[in-house]
Design a protein around this nucleic acid. Structure first.
Length: 232
DNA sequence: GATGAGTTTCCTGATT
DNA sequence: CAATCAGGAAACTCAT
């Protein structure tokens, strides 16, 4: 079964593009819908079955659909992890998804959970779906938020600045603005730099950050990833 | 409902 | 003096 699924039907070299584009594309593409006609009595197409009752084949079809629609890089998906029934798939935790498919795992997990709770109607309202997914894709951890801000000049607005790009040393230029932005992300208008920096200090323990003895200066530690120029 | 990770909140004291 | 750093302690939130 595992070998019978040709990897070439996935998008082996597709990069990880804007998934929101794919969502809107999906709904504006009328040719997409006839795909649902394929279902027959003995071999139903995955959207017509609740994920809990998916066969291994349904899981594969769903995986393939997600890869196609969201331009997920099939190379980062460990296929043996997904050689499971729908019931087993549904019992997988978010961490297991991430272990099995890295960043793609986060998307797959989110899409699956949404389908489980809302059924296929999850796809009904493009605008709401778009918003929900955008929300979901925001990294929830503070250090990832800081990292992503550092990596996107548009959002950053000079709030953070690289001090030493190679070594992962950066400076908080506008501490109040940073706190405000983090507060917006967490929907907490009482956030301050004092409190945010306390959370950053906890990262010294876990190796996400390393101490730099300068005011407002931090450094990514060995357990932080995704900030290096060459990687990612 | 219990547990644990990741904060959030608050605080006291030191440093810049 | 105001802002920041250092952590301890406890509350809180959310996923498992």
């Amino acid at each position: 079964m595992l070998d019978s699924v040709t990897h070439s039907t996935f998008l082996p070299n597709a990069s990880f593009c804007d998934p929101l584009m794919s969502w809107t594309d999906l709904f504006s593409n009328e040719e997409y819908y006839p795909a649902f006609e394929h279902q027959t009595a003995c071999d139903s197409y995955w959207p017509s079955v609740h994920p809990e009752y998916w066969t291994k084949r349904h899981v594969w079809e769903w995986l393939q659909f997600c890869c196609d629609q969201y331009k997920l890089d099939a190379n980062c998906i460990s296929f043996c992890h997904f050689n499971v029934s729908g019931l087993q798939l549904c019992s997988m935790t978010q961490e297991e998804f991430i272990e099995a498919a890295g960043v793609c795992g986060e998307y797959l997990y989110f899409i699956l959970q949404s389908m489980r709770s809302q059924g296929y109607s999850f796809f009904n309202d493009p605008e709401e779906t778009k918003a929900t997914i955008k929300d979901c894709l925001q990294s929830s951890h503070l250090w990832e938020f800081v990292r992503d801000l550092l990596l996107s000049p548009e959002e950053n607005c000079g709030i953070l600045e690289w001090e030493d790009r190679e070594q992962g040393i950066f400076r908080v230029v506008k501490s109040e603005a940073l706190a405000k932005m983090w507060g917006q992300r967490k929907r907490n208008d009482r956030m301050t730099y004092e409190k945010l920096s306390r959370a950053l200090r906890y990262y010294y323990k876990t190796g996400i950050l390393e101490r730099v003895d300068r005011r407002l200066v931090y450094k990514f530690g060995k357990n932080a990833h995704g900030w290096q120029e060459d990687k990612l």
